[in-house]
Amino acid sequence: MEAASGRRIRVLVAKLGLDAHDRGAKVVARAYRDAGFEVIYTGLYQRPEAVAAAAIQEDVDVVAVSSLAGAHGVLIPQLIQLLREQGVDDVLILAGGIIPEDEVPALLEAGVSRVFGPGSDLEEIIEYTRENVKR
């Protein structure tokens, strides 16, 4: 799976904060890998600073954050802010997990492109990523 630059699309699948639920993140990481993306999974318990640094260092095209513990409203905007402060604004940011419908607009406002809720189709996530990657 290639980005406009001709190389394979690089995705960072991230778990932020103290949220230990990693089933979904791992399934999504594997689905990206099987679809031909280059995948880096952060593992659990990452601070926004560490995820931002990894995104920059690994030069990823996509950061897909999984959140099932309710801290998305604080940690995802922090991550996006950190990326912007370091001059990164062309990375596609996706969120998934248990994120109540009425908290989605604030995340979109903060710079998340799309939120995938429980039961989302893996193909749809991959298709969306392919079509919306920004570089």
């Binding site: 904060g17 103290l18 513990a69 801290a71 409203g73 604080v74």
Partner: peptide, 10 residues
């Protein structure tokens, strides 16, 4: 600091 945003949530 690590508890920010997670207190009382789950």
């Amino acid at each position: 600091p690590y508890a920010n945003g997670e207190v009382g949530k789950l």
